[in-house]
């Protein structure tokens, strides 16, 4: 009790009430969770396909919309949707990979970027046509409604769940890639697909599943985001550009690096919102500029 009063005094010295600071830090942590899951998906896809998936933001939006559609057209609630929506978006991703992306592997990687940019325009445009831009509400599931008063701040249950769920998914992905046999095949195929194919491993299948998995991660983030932000066709467009900056800062060489950079930058953004609100929209880009000056290959990147 005494110690808490001490921290209060420290915060008051800075002129910031602790509720505000912790509230913004929580918001930053939630944004950071989305950055982490999305940049993780980008890194996984880039590792094997050498393609920057510009459609990642649109697919994140699609995950949120699939959850909304499941609820409104089929009456399927949040918990099944948390599994189903990523599966559906992932399957859609596999369809995209089989029909289009796979035709570009022999070309300059920039064509992959251009193709996925076009796909993002199509997906966003279609959803905007049918659902408008005003955004659709999605209820927080009953189990997670309400919140707890922790004494120093109010913690909404759903927000705590978002942080926990995304952390679990990130760690599970890291574990699969770094510690399992399947992950070993994946890492080997990243290094040398021809040789891995010669050992009898179906590399095109691996590529297809990897893209589907990366897209499913984006869809999962979309479902998590649906109750927090309104479900909106534009929700992924601005997000993806920030995630690109996150990826440039972290470098895509390391899975854990992508995850950590996402969380840390979310927190930095939250802190900026407390101390210098005008700068919160650009702080990640400023950090990117500094990183480019000091360590151009990214914090966790390999020299390219």
């Amino acid at each position: 009790m005494k110690r808490r009063r001490g921290t209060f005094r420290m915060f008051e010295l800075l002129g910031i009430p602790p509720q505000v600071l912790l509230g913004q830090l929580l918001l930053g942590l939630i944004n950071g969770s989305f950055y982490a899951v999305l940049s993780l998906g980008l890194a996984v896809i880039f590792g094997l396909l050498n393609i920057i998936n510009f459609a990642h933001g649109a697919l994140y939006m699609m995950g949120a919309f699939v959850a909304w559609m499941l609820l409104h057209y089929l009456g399927i609630g949040y918990w099944p949707a948390l599994i189903l929506a990523p599966l559906i978006t992932g399957a859609f991703g596999i369809l995209l990979e089989r029909t289009m992306l796979s035709r570009l592997y022999h070309l300059d990687h920039l064509y992959g970027l251009l193709l996925t940019f076009g796909l993002a325009l199509i997906i966003q445009g279609l959803f905007r046509n049918y659902y408008g831009i005003s955004g659709l509400p999605y209820q927080i599931p009953d189990l997670l409604s309400g919140g707890n008063n922790l004494g120093f701040m109010f913690l909404p249950n759903y927000r705590a769940w978002v942080v926990v769920a995304s952390a679990i998914v990130c760690l599970a992905t890291w574990f699969i890639i770094e510690k399992t046999r399947l992950g070993a095949y994946l890492r080997a195929a990243t290094e040398n697909p021809v040789l891995v194919g010669a050992f009898g491993i179906n590399v095109p299948l691996l590529i297809m599943l990897t893209y589907g998995f990366g897209v499913a991660l984006a869809g999962f983030a979309g479902v998590l985001a649906a109750p927090i932000y309104s479900v909106n066709p534009n929700m992924g467009a601005d997000m993806i550009i920030v995630v690109f900056a996150v990826v440039v800062i972290g470098g895509m060489g390391s899975i854990m690096g992508a995850i950590l950079t996402g969380y840390v930058l979310g927190l930095v953004e939250g802190l900026t919102r407390v101390f210098y609100p005008e700068g919160s929209a650009v702080v990640i880009f400023v950090i990117m500029a500094i990183v480019l000056l000091i360590k151009p290959e990214g914090l966790f990147g390999k020299a390219a």
Binding site: F46, I52, L110, F244, V248, V282, F285, M288, E297
Partner: peptide, 17 residues
């Protein structure tokens, strides 16, 4: 200072700024 695909992402991010 970055090449290829990173160059595209960096320029996009700065433009967003």
């Amino acid at each position: 200072r970055r090449q290829g695909i990173y160059f595209a992402m960096v320029t996009l991010a700065f433009a967003q700024m």
